[in-house]
């Protein structure tokens, strides 16, 4: 298979004013995704980071229409998929795939790996050659196993015979079966041991090089996201608070929340730096604070932050932040 070099100027995914709201008992609403807009160019990796309850997983599921969006639009390759019928969506589903965190739960324990991987091929016809023949399926499965670094004998075995890392390779292989263009990976390495985690991150990078894939990579681990991403979006309580080039966002954050996050991660090479004084817990997404949702925990909060929600605006070209007092002037440069 020869893959043409991806056209990196082309926008593959564009999200406009996406909302996802849940109605809770007692007339409460949960705004899991609140007016989010961003775009992903072809061949790019967008890292989506944030703590629990920030809506990153909900957003990931909305992108593939595994969850219906409440309002707003998602354009995949120029086509709005939010309002497509299930039938019209089906051909597009081949080009959009997801990899989940829990590698065991996503594999049916009673079915052989060969069956699990062949299933999408049996369901979806090939866009050019029509229905997949048995030979085509066998050839494709062998190719997939080679791609993700599993032995060919794996086809005859059951999920429980594999370790966590290998199961995640199987999940990745399954996502790749129909040659997708975009993969949304939701915490794909969080459940893995450190030594195995590195292997899977490398696999993601290799696959991108070989197949020209585009990823939306969701993780709470900033180091993992930095390793894989071209750009990073930081989410807090349903909104994107900062988005830009990976090292710009992570090393010279303009939002106080991003800054707090980056300083909070302990790192073996950092030694005892003393963690920053962080106060308060993440508020419940059901009762978000007024104005800027971060203001109760923000060391720089002013009166305006309580009243008015800041808009996501450029501080620099290709670096956007939603903060009334972005930290540009206070930036610390790390080398």
């Amino acid at each position: 298979m020869s893959i043409p070099a991806p056209d990196t100027t082309k926008t593959l995914l564009e999200v406009r004013h996406l909302h996802k709201t849940y109605q809770l008992p007692g007339r409460k609403t949960l705004k899991a995704v609140d007016d989010i807009s961003f775009s992903v160019r072809q061949g790019e990796v967008l890292g989506l980071v944030g703590e629990s309850g920030c809506g990153k997983s909900t957003l990931g599921r909305c992108l593939l229409r595994l969850l219906p969006a409440s309002s707003g639009s998602i354009l995949f390759d120029g086509q709005d998929i939010t309002r497509l019928s299930e039938r019209k969506l089906r051909p597009l589903r081949q080009r959009l795939q997801m990899v989940f965190q829990d590698s065991s739960a996503s594999l049916n324990p009673r079915r052989r790996i060969g069956d699990l991987l062949a299933e999408p091929l049996r369901v979806h016809a090939d866009p050019i050659n029509g229905k997949h023949t048995a030979d085509m399926i066998t050839a494709r499965l062998t190719e997939l196993l080679d791609l993700v670094g599993l032995p060919r004998s794996a086809l005859e075995r059951y999920p429980h015979e594999f370790s966590g890392g290998q199961k995640q390779r199987i999940n990745i292989a399954r996502a790749l079966t129909l040659s997708p263009q975009l993969i949304v990976a939701d915490e794909p390495v969080s459940a893995l041991d450190v030594s195995v985690q590195a292997q899977i991150i490398n696999l993601f990078a290799d696959l991108q090089d070989q197949l020209g894939l585009t990823y939306v990579f969701i993780s709470h681990d900033l180091s993992v996201v930095r390793q894989i991403s071209t750009r990073v979006a930081v989410m807090y309580l349903g909104s994107i608070v900062e988005i830009g080039e990976t090292d710009t966002v992570l090393h010279t954050p303009a939002h106080p929340y991003t800054s707090m996050l980056t300083q909070a991660i302990p790192h073996p090479t950092k030694g005892k730096t003393g963690l920053p004084a962080i106060t308060g817990d993440i508020p419940s997404p059901v009762s978000r604070p007024s104005g800027c949702h971060f203001h109760p925990r923000c060391p720089y909060a002013q009166a305006i932050c309580r009243e008015k929600a800041p808009a996501l605006e450029n501080v620099k070209p290709s670096h956007m932040v939603s903060c009334h007092f972005p930290l540009v002037a206070l930036q610390k440069i790390y080398v």
Binding site: S163, G164, G165, Q166, D193, V194, S195, V196, Q197, A198, Q199, I201, N202, A205, D206, L222, S223, V224, R226, Q227, L250, H251, T262, I265, H267, P268, T269, K270, Y334, V335
Partner: peptide
């Protein structure tokens, strides 16, 4: 230690992972 993705400094294209489990 090497297989932990670094937060600062150079980003290696591939991480020096330990093979196997």
């Amino acid at each position: 230690l090497n297989s932990i993705p670094p937060f600062y400094g150079e980003r290696p294209h591939r991480l020096p992972a330990i093979a196997g489990t």
